[in-house]
Design a protein around this nucleic acid. Structure first.
Lengths: 357, 357
DNA sequence: CCGGTTTCCCAAAGCGCTTTGAACGAACTG
DNA sequence: CAGTTCGTTCAAAGCGCTTTGGGAAACCGG
């Protein structure tokens, strides 16, 4: 059943039927009702390809999906996608994923642009040496970034969370609790979010008069394995008086490994070491589900996905214009994994200091 | 730059240019080279919507993405998608996700069919009361199922792993190690994979003369939380002589929670309890990453994704026809979490029995 | 040298939709 | 009542591609 047949059936022109269906005002109500009813009854659905060709609109938003041996589509992405999907449904837009390895990324965007298969794209996992913003802009594809490049001066629309503020606040809390030897098991600092987080940590330390050189900072992909490995490196053979007492972790997955290392080494939270983790709010892995409930900085990546879809649709339709920067605050939630820094019992000067407290 | 312009530029007809580009034989080699070169140089890419309209082919495969408050797009799906994406890239097809809540699922398939926006769909997470196979077949959409319905008689193409065999083998191993009190923390038995797994467990038990009523079976979504909760239920207040000594777990996520419960309750693996987990091969959560390395049944869900894409493309192109059933064997890999059943020291009759061994 | 193939290319007809521009009563206005 | 406006409908022209059905040259064997 196509438009022509439906029009014939109704003894109307294709024009009128099309307009009735698409809600144009210049069609009489009784006519519209007749058309709608007939379309419903015969299960007429416009051919999306024909519509796309005629309108030039694609009715879908695109994403270049990183694939390849070393790129793991991680759980963060799923959660994000899930939020995006929820909103996409409401707006009746589809998601089109174009898989591409990193080295052929720009080719993928060019293909998307040239073939006009989507109305807009979202960019995520912003890197320090981000090329895509310039690229998609020059290709004329409407876009919205999740996260932001290092230089915010460029003027493009984005949604980001306040990574810098979150880790500043978390660090400040550890410092207020008396921790002086801090470690930060960060994500890959090729990505800007990790850089922002590091900046937050450093800002808090500086404000407390702590040299940032004293921070034990490690940057690696956020997973169980790396969390375990790095925690072992930091704590296994360390002098109890020199090892960190406060740990910041960039992800629940890293923390999974960190906690495993702590268990193995017999380190207790929060007596021996405090930890604050960033929580992206995974429904399948919650901070309350750890043997010692985790203190976290929390921001739902799923909510971000929904919001991004909403804004991207607006950008495409022209309802949003201009380089709107949206930065979400992050909550710091204190649970059981943070506590006062342990007293350095064997230390002389420090010991007296603490006795005075 | 469109076909018309390119043709004009080359002083050729659109027909010839189109044919040259699409590799039809009836165009002279020198002409083809000229066309190819010009297309390359001017960055010509055919408009995908126009092509789709003209050919009736969509160049993409579809998936109805479950969304909604209670549906968590889980990590299994991401891994699967990742594999699918890898292969999709090679074949230059896109993935089109249509988000839909469960109650509007069939509507989504109808929309897909009517709008002709994809060439084929894959179905996953097969349920016991699976409706989709009949639906998509009646809609005339080529499809491939990941997993299978309960009654295999229906005759449709699918790819599945040997869930029944995997859990049979795992159970048999536990029985051979002397375990008699078994627990199975299964996935949601609304899904057929969980039913198949249960069948495997029961078959092994029956073969060993064990009544399947003695199995402590629990069915729930596979995540950390449920794993923890169910393990606590099973072990917290249980008489050490009555509690299970062998546990089967349907997913690494469940096991994450189970292990947490064990730690909390002071149960050691494998001295107090043995566990075998199904491993879908997540790059971010490995059985080797547990404090006690996990024995697993292993099958890469990512590889399945790639294979499904490959087959679906073949089905669409007509290279594969007929209801091909492909069932992958599953490896049983023994690591440190399995060992002989603990001796029931305090038991009288049993004690003598075991002394005789 | 001529009828019949081959080889290479073209004009034009769609694919199913949207949208422009015009037509035609009916309803207003002065 | 002529002139204008409004409301409703339609025919036809695209959107950019593929594909059908030729047709003109070049090639072939007899």
């Amino acid at each position: 059943m196509n438009l022509k047949q439906l029009a014939e059936l109704l003894q109307l022109s294709q024009t009128t039927v099309s307009r009735a269906l698409n809600g144009y005002p210049e069609v009489a109500e009784p006519t519209r009702d007749r058309v709608l009813e007939a379309a419903q009854r015969h299960g007429y659905k416009p051919n999306s390809n024909a519509r796309k060709l005629a309108t030039g609109r694609a009715g879908s938003i695109g994403y270049v999906l990183p694939v390849g041996r070393n790129v793991d589509l991680d759980p963060h992405f799923v959660e994000f996608l899930s939020g995006l999907g929820e909103h996409a449904l409401m707006r009746e837009v589809d998601l089109s994923l174009t898989p591409a390895p990193r080295e052929r990324e720009s080719e993928a965007y060019r293909r998307i642009a040239a073939s006009r298969s989507v109305d807009g794209v979202y960019l995520s996992s912003m890197r320090n040496d981000e090329q895509r913003i310039g690229l998609v802009r020059s290709l004329g594809i409407p876009f919205l970034a999740h996260g932001r490049a290092l230089k915010p001066a460029e003027g493009y629309a984005f949604l980001d969370i306040d990574n810098e503020g979150a880790f500043h606040d978390a660090t400040r809390l550890l410092l207020q609790l008396g921790h002086r030897r801090l470690a930060f098991i960060n994500g890959d600092t090729d990505f800007t979010f990790a850089v922002h987080r590091l900046n937050g940590v450093i800002r808090a330390m500086t404000a407390h008069g702590l040299p940032f050189e004293s921070l034990r900072h490690h940057s690696a992909a956020m997973n169980e394995e790396n969390g375990y490995r790095l925690a072992m490196e930091l704590f296994r053979d360390a002098d109890p008086l020199a090892r960190p007492t406060g740990v910041l972790s960039a992800s629940m997955f890293s923390t999974l490994g960190i906690v495993r290392a702590f268990n193995q080494l017999g380190l207790r939270m929060p007596q021996d070491v405090s930890i604050i983790t960033h929580d992206d709010v995974f429904p399948f892995l919650k901070p309350e589900s750890f043997s010692v409930q985790l203190s976290t900085t929390r921001s739902s990546i799923r909510a971000a996905g929904a919001r991004i879809c909403e804004r991207l649709v607006n950008i495409i339709s022209g309802a949003e214009s201009g380089p709107v920067a949206e930065i979400w605050p992050v909550e710091l939630i204190v649970r059981a994994s943070t506590g006062p820094a342990p007293a350095d019992r064997k230390a002389g000067r420090r010991g007296t200091q603490e006795a005075a407290e």
